[in-house]
């Protein structure tokens, strides 16, 4: 048996969600007696691959086609389908992401595979193939049986530990042709925050709400985020008002995060915001309103003025290090 894992890179490094997918696949491979094949597309720095082996890969394939540096949905789908067949895989594992979701859906049809997204644990194989997924934006779970022979699992972030005890293995270059017809949707440019920790990938997230009164007050959010190596988020009103870019909006209709620590500053905690953060392991709420609904969803809270509490918290965290 054979599993294929599709991994993504960001700024030359393998995304941690992709490393998690590799380790998840290694866990599944152990249950099935299967081999873990990993596929990376486009330019990936040679030193980045070591972690993939350590995370549990048995074989690594690399298609270094520069056209795939961009997340061209059709082209990535085509490459994955070709490699899936070539290695005789029965299951494709990938991390849920903007690109991962888009390619997984096309691959379900190309490969005639049963697809489950938002997977939160290894499957139960005692009676078929039953896997648990998050639904209703984290408000519930569904034990889902896949009846198709081939399977695609899009794994939610922060549900499986990344292994580091595997072996560094050699990367095998692939010789594949991706037909031009897969490049009909042309990516003409991109705007991307350089050097920032990606919000969906982050282990710690610091978010600010409308209680911060204006975009000019985001400096202290940035300082706290920097002190914790955290990604920055915000509530929907903040992004709607244009104080922060949309890709920082955390919530029901924004980014859903699953960090180890989520710090919410001056956010009241509307149910639509909570839907985006309920997969966080620990939630800290700082708000001057003791009746803010967010406190009910929090692990730890401080009732206080953000302008007073946040700089002190940054100082205290810097003092720890």
């Amino acid at each position: 048996m054979s599993i294929l894992v599709y991994i993504e890179q960001d700024q030359g490094k393998i995304k941690s969600s992709s490393l998690e997918a590799v380790s998840y696949a290694a866990g599944l491979a152990e249950m099935q007696g299967a081999k873990v094949n990993v596929l990376g597309l486009g330019s990936i720095g040679s030193e980045a691959w070591d972690q993939v082996g350590l995370a549990g890969a048995n074989a690594i394939f690399h298609l270094e086609d520069k056209r795939l540096d961009q997340g061209v949905i059709l082209a990535h789908s085509d490459a994955i389908a070709q490699v899936f067949d070539r290695v005789g895989a029965s299951t494709l594992v990938l991390a849920k992401s903007s690109l991962g979701d888009a390619v997984a859906a096309r691959l379900a049809i190309k490969l005639d595979a049963g697809l489950v997204s938002n997977v939160v644990g290894l499957p139960d194989l005692t009676n078929g193939f039953v896997v648990k997924r998050s639904i209703f934006t984290g408000k519930a779970f569904a034990e889902t049986a896949i009846s198709a022979d081939k399977k695609i699992l899009a794994v939610k972030k922060n549900i499986y530990p990344i292994k580091t005890d595997g072996e560094v293995i050699k990367v095998e270059p692939l010789d594949l042709t991706i037909a031009d017809e897969n490049f009909v949707a042309k990516i003409t440019g991109a705007e991307k925050a350089e050097g920032e920790i990606l919000l969906p990938e982050a282990d710690v997230v610091v978010s600010g709400g409308r209680g911060l009164k204006g975009p000019e007050n985001w400096g202290m959010i940035e300082e706290l985020a920097d002190s914790l190596h955290a990604a920055k988020g915000c509530s929907k009103p903040v992004s709607d008002l244009g104080w922060r870019p949309h890709h920082e909006h955390v919530g029901q209709t924004g980014v859903k995060v699953a960090p180890t620590l989520y710090i919410a500053i001056a956010i009241s905690g509307a149910i639509q915001h909570l839907a985006g953060v309920n997969a966080s392991k620990y939630i800290v709420v700082i708000n001057n309103d003791p009746d803010a609904p967010f406190f009910k969803a929090a692990d730890y809270g401080i009732v206080g003025d953000a302008f007073d509490v946040v700089p002190k918290l940054t100082q205290a965290i810097k003092a720890l290090k």
Binding site: S98, T188, E191, H247
Partner: peptide
């Protein structure tokens, strides 16, 4: 199209 940390621009027929 939104991507992690930003957006990309696409033209398609």
């Amino acid at each position: 199209r939104e991507i992690e940390g930003g957006k990309e621009f696409i033209e398609v027929d």
